[in-house]
Structures are given as structure tokens and as C-alpha cells.
């Protein structure tokens, strides 16, 4: 048996999460006393395989196919690899494409699926730690099966760095074209608009706590007083209160300003992924347990509608 990690790439680039997957995968493999293999499907697989040449990987299996992502191709190729390798655990990134593949793969392979792992342990059978209720609770899931599919959360494991001398094997998968019932026709980048939040030194960032679109001028007033730029977390964009070019997070922009002031933002993992590298993080939130305080340098547990007007006054 072995552990099989499924690498992810997009538009010709191997994604960082693939190297994190190797770290998670080799932890599992070491615990299970098994080998770690990596599958990379489609695109310039030889170049990807070279980039996946990392300590702890036994073999990289390459499947030559189109560069564009298609879940059916992935599932067909992985099913055939599964027949050959019979891996114990198949690890997939918990990304948009991972979510497009892993659930169907687990059904096809008749394996249990646990998603969004933040920690893995095999001492007493496979145990997966994952979060619930928007990071308020950590749950341990026990897998009473020798085989499983697990998706792992990006940036929870460090990317594997040390290169090695892995074997690269071209795997000859038979892809049934008739089973492919969707196709990628192109890509669209989020509009940049007139504001580039990635260039700002100081960001005043607003979240769900603002309650109403009518309260947004308060945030813009603060930004003006501080000579800062306004950014936002996802709910503000979803509500259409601010345009997508203002969104900080996994599906928006990654920012690293000198100062990031999070106002009424709980700090969901997807948001934190976009701002954790800011030099100084300041958080104002009514919930003392909000995860934003875990990464903040300075915090005020209070009502933003009380604190922000006072703060504006300090700079007038």
C-alpha cells in the first residue's frame, strides 16, 4: 500500500498547494510505513514532475493529457492508478478543483471522504482533524476503513522544499472521451477597477459586522482620516456593497500592507489566507473568540460603531 497525493496545476503552473500536499502525504506515509507517490494529470507533466521532485516522494506518476482541468479525466486516470497502486489514502488539495474531483472520486472508488483536514494522525487508525462552525470547533474524525480520500486545507502544511531523486513514471491511462461532458472554454480575471488594494500601505478592511450598506461611510471616513485604502471581506462583496477588486482573501486579493485594520471581520480561514502577511494587524470585533484575534497584533473587543468614531476623532 502507499499514499497517493494528487498534484494541482493551473494554466501551466504547478500550484504551491501541491508541495504542501507532499508534506502532508509524507507525514501520513511515514506513520503508515508506506511509500508516498504523487500523480500529476495533464499539461506539461514532465516539467511538473521535475518540480515535484521532493524528499519523501517515491514515484511521480504522470498522465499525459490536456492542460485544462477536467474532473472526468482526473477521475478516470485516478481510478486506473488506484487499480494499479491500491493506495491507502488519496490526498487531494481542498481547493475549488479539489472540491470538483474528490467527492466524486470517493464515490467512484467506494472510499470514505473527509474534507478540509487541518491535521492528520495515523497512530490509532486514520484520524482527521477538521474545523466546524467557521473555525469555532475542532473535530476529530475517525476513519474505520483502510482506505480513504482526504482533502487537505491549503497553507496548513509547509511546502516540501528539499529536492530528491524521485522516479518519474509515465502512466498510460485510457481516457474515454465519451465520458467527458464538460469542457473549459476560457478564464476570466476579476476586474481590477480603479483601486489596487495590493499596493496600499494601510488598509482599513470591513466585514460582516458593519451590518448595513448604509454604515459603510463610517469606514470610508476612517480610511480618509488615516490616508488609507478600504478593502473588505467576502460577505461585503457578495452583498454587492463593494466591488470584487476590494476583496481580501483566498478568492480575492492577497495583500501584505504595513498596517491592516480588520473591522467587524471574524477572520475565517479564507480571509486570513489573504492578509496574514501584513506587518501589523489590528482587529476590532465584538466576539472575543473571533479567529481574527489569533493573528492580530493589537485587538479591541468592542462594538465597532463605538470605537471607530472615536478613532476618527483622534485623527481630526
Amino acid at each position: 500500500m502507499s499514499v497517493l497525493a494528487v498534484a494541482e496545476h493551473r494554466r501551466g503552473e504547478l500550484r504551491d498547494v501541491s508541495l504542501e500536499l507532499i508534506t502532508a502525504g509524507r507525514e501520513l506515509a511515514a506513520g503508515l510505513d508506506e511509500r508516498l507517490h504523487v500523480a500529476v494529470i495533464g499539461g506539461d507533466v514532465e516539467r511538473f514532475a521535475a518540480e515535484l521532485n521532493r524528499e519523501g516522494v517515491d514515484t511521480v506518476y504522470t498522465v499525459d493529457y490536456d492542460d485544462t482541468f477536467n474532473h472526468s479525466v482526473y477521475i478516470q486516470a485516478l481510478s486506473q492508478l488506484d487499480d494499479t497502486l491500491d493506495p491507502s489514502v488519496v490526498v487531494v488539495p481542498h481547493t475549488s478543483n479539489g472540491l470538483d474531483v474528490a467527492p466524486a472520486l470517493s464515490v467512484r472508488l467506494d472510499r470514505p471522504l473527509v474534507t478540509d483536514a487541518v491535521a492528520l494522525d495515523v497512530e490509532d487508525g486514520l484520524r482527521v482533524t477538521r474545523e466546524m462552525y467557521g473555525s469555532k470547533v475542532e473535530t476529530a474524525i475517525g476513519v474505520e476503513s483502510e482506505r480513504a480520500v482526504v482533502t487537505v486545507r491549503p497553507t496548513e502544511w509547509d511546502p516540501a522544499a528539499e529536492t530528491s531523486n524521485v522516479t518519474v513514471t509515465a502512466f498510460d491511462a485510457t481516457i474515454d472521451e465519451d465520458a467527458i461532458r464538460s469542457s473549459v472554454t476560457g478564464y476570466k480575471e476579476a476586474a481590477t477597477g480603479d483601486v489596487d488594494i495590493t499596493n496600499a500601505d494601510v488598509l482599513v478592511s470591513v466585514g460582516r459586522g458593519i451590518d448595513d450598506e448604509e454604515n459603510l461611510p463610517l469606514i470610508f471616513d476612517l480610511a480618509e482620516a488615516l490616508d488609507a485604502t478600504v478593502s473588505a471581506s467576502r460577505p461585503i462583496i457578495d452583498n454587492g456593497w463593494l466591488p470584487p477588486n476590494r476583496q481580501v482573501g483566498q478568492s480575492g486579493k492577497v495583500v501584505s500592507p504595513d498596517v491592516y485594520i480588520a473591522i467587524g471581520i471574524s477572520g475565517a480561514v479564507q480571509h486570513v489566507a489573504g492578509m496574514k502577511d501584513a506587518d501589523t494587524i489590528i482587529a476590532i470585533n465584538t466576539d472575543p473568540n473571533a479567529p481574527i484575534f489569533d493573528i492580530a497584533d493589537y485587538g479591541i473587543v468592542d462594538d465597532l460603531f463605538e470605537v471607530v468614531p472615536e478613532l476618527i476623532e483622534q485623527f481630526e
Binding site: 472554454t185 478564464y187 480575471e189 483566498q250 478568492s251 480575492g252 486579493k253 492577497v254
Partner: peptide, 8 residues
């Protein structure tokens, strides 16, 4: 997809 990219 991640990073403000949409796949059509």
C-alpha cells in the same frame, strides 16, 4: 478558483 480567477 482561488485568487480572483474564474474558469469558464
Amino acid at each position: 478558483l482561488e485568487g480572483g480567477v474564474e474558469e469558464l
